[in-house]
Amino acid sequence: MSVPEFEQITLTLADRVLEVRLNRPDRMNAFTPVMRTEMVEALDWAEANDDVRVVIVTGEGRAFCAGADLGGAGDKPFSYSGDGMRNDRSDADEIAGLPRDGGGVVTLRLASFPKPVIAAINGAAIGVGITMTLPMDIRIASTKAKFGFVFARRGIAPEAVSSWFLPRVVGISQASEWALTGRVFEADEALRGRLVSRVVEPEDVLPTARAIAREIADNTSGVAVAATRRMLWSQLTQDDLWETHKLETQTIAALKQGPDAKEGVASFLEKRDAVFTGRLDTDLPDAVPDWPVRPAAD
């Protein structure tokens, strides 16, 4: 199946795993309004495509993403005022009467994306280059990768909804140290702080990400994975255990009526590989909450 072609990212689909490669190596894959729009369009396409079970995001060349392109070579530069983020797409609309933060447009689309996303961080991931990965489900880093939540050193505050995601991913104390100092740190510190789950040699970053993607794509129900992903994230702010208990009860009951639960049990009893046929558009239980829920009006 052919995949869309873009200017600043490239897509490769093989065996139900879609690889999204940030592709501005001459600028260390720095983030631009064009890249923002293309990332959203790629995720829209991947969500609607049943042949995509898992997405891997990585960078071309020696960097993952060196942050916002403040120089603007070959593209309109990123503007912290929001001017550089305007275009005619609905994903660039306003919030609180201001153009939406471009990094937040991408991270909120990733957050609502129902399929697993793995970050294969092959090099520098600075500013939006690391905050865009926070709603991704798994982060694998090269030993050569560097990280930095550098916003305070640029005179601005955290973006891309990272003031929500980062403390939930690594805890408030670690998030505070990294965000308040704005310093750049190495992959081993990222691993100790649980920002990434594995650090591997540079040549092993993509193979490791692909192996995890294969494990998901080959062995799990896409409907069950989508339900699980939404439940895990949405319940981070749930303070009533009974509400979570109700959600799980309703979701399990609904999934048992669908094809994948029946196939999962049958394949186990028959000692064979499962062949899951459930579809997100028809079999995802209504009880599974939409997340994040966009406000009706600001």
Rank of each mutant, 00 (worst) to 15 (best):
A160N: 04
D281W: 02
P33I: 02
V128W: 05
R168E: 00
D218Y: 06
F113Y: 09
R21F: 01
V17R: 06
M231H: 15
I252Y: 10
A175I: 00
V223K: 08
V17P: 02
W164S: 09
V161N: 03
S79D: 13
D239Y: 11
G74K: 06
P292V: 04
F113T: 11
L70M: 15
K262F: 12
K115M: 09
E215F: 08
G182I: 00
D286Q: 15
W233M: 15
G59L: 06
V199E: 05
D273S: 14
R153L: 15
S2Q: 12
L13Q: 07
R53S: 11
G59I: 06
P4F: 00
K271V: 10
R53F: 10
Q238E: 15
R168G: 05
T244A: 12
G97P: 04
M35A: 11
A217L: 01
R168C: 02
L18W: 08
K146V: 14
E7G: 06
P116R: 15
V128P: 00
E19D: 08
D273N: 15
V161P: 00
E203H: 10
K115E: 05
A125G: 11
V40Q: 00
A211Y: 05
Q257T: 08
A187K: 02
L206P: 04
T32W: 02
E177R: 09
P259H: 09
V40A: 07
D88R: 09
A73Y: 11
P289T: 03
A48D: 12
Y80F: 12
G59T: 05
D137S: 06
I216P: 02
G123V: 06
E203S: 14
P135M: 14
A111H: 04
R168M: 00
M39V: 07
F147H: 04
T244R: 11
D290T: 14
T58E: 03
F147I: 00
L180T: 08
G74A: 10
L110G: 01
R24N: 01
L98V: 07
A254Q: 13
P33D: 03
K76Q: 10
R109D: 08
L70I: 15
M35E: 12
K76N: 08
D75F: 13
L11H: 02
D91Y: 13
V225S: 06
D101Q: 13
G129E: 03
F149Y: 11
L206F: 13
A296G: 14
P25R: 04
T133Q: 02
R153A: 15
I130P: 02
A48V: 07
V106S: 02
M35C: 13
C65W: 04
A253P: 01
D51P: 05
L22M: 11
R183C: 06
R27I: 12
A211P: 02
E186N: 12
V128L: 09
R230W: 13
D91E: 15
C65R: 01
M39T: 11
I130F: 01
V184E: 11
S173C: 05
G182E: 10
L232G: 04
G97L: 09
F185Q: 06
D239C: 08
P99V: 12
G104W: 03
N49L: 05
I252G: 04
T133W: 05
